[in-house]
């Protein structure tokens, strides 16, 4: 656990010390599936369903939620749609381990802050040679300090 914490700290330090001081950051909440069966309804009262993220100028995105800790790269379309492949640490109802994620999102209604909706799928290696997977469908708000 100490090693994972140090790797995360180093990654954040590297990102902050690079030319990527301009950023976009946001918080989103919604519906989670944690590998235990059916899709769940959106639950905005539960902190577990929330995700925080920060995207730096170089399009590197760092996101943290109860279900993952991921680093990826954002690919943005002119229409406001974006795709974010990422890798990192994944947790679901059956365990946790290293894994990958694919996020599909859409940004809309920007007045200083932007609303965005996203769907994220995850897949990883869990304990005892089992897999961990899951999904989340969220809606959130983004703030950017870029001009």
């Amino acid at each position: 656990m100490k090693k994972e914490f140090l790797v995360t700290l180093c990654t954040i330090s590297f990102l902050c010390s690079s030319r990527a001081m301009a950023f976009r950051a946001g918080l989103s909440g919604g519906s989670l599936g944690v590998g235990t069966g059916h899709s769940n309804a959106a639950d905005f009262a539960s902190p577990v369903a929330y995700k925080a993220h920060v995207t730096f100028r170089n399009k590197i995105d760092l996101s943290l939620a109860a279900t993952h800790l991921l680093v990826g790269r954002v690919y943005e379309f002119n229409s406001g749609a974006f795709v974010l492949p990422a890798a990192g640490f994944i947790l679901d109802g059956n365990g946790s381990g290293p894994g990958v994620s694919a996020l599909f999102g859409f940004t809309f209604f920007c007045w200083g802050v932007c609303f965005y909706s996203e769907f994220q799928q995850q897949l990883g290696f869990g304990p005892n040679r089992k897999m961990v997977s899951g999904y989340s469908a969220r809606i959130g708000l983004d703030y950017t300090n870029e001009k």
Partner: peptide, 11 residues
């Protein structure tokens, strides 16, 4: 890597 998301309640 494809996914199919069936909204809650429709599953």
């Amino acid at each position: 890597w494809d996914t199919l998301y069936v909204p809650p309640g429709l599953s």
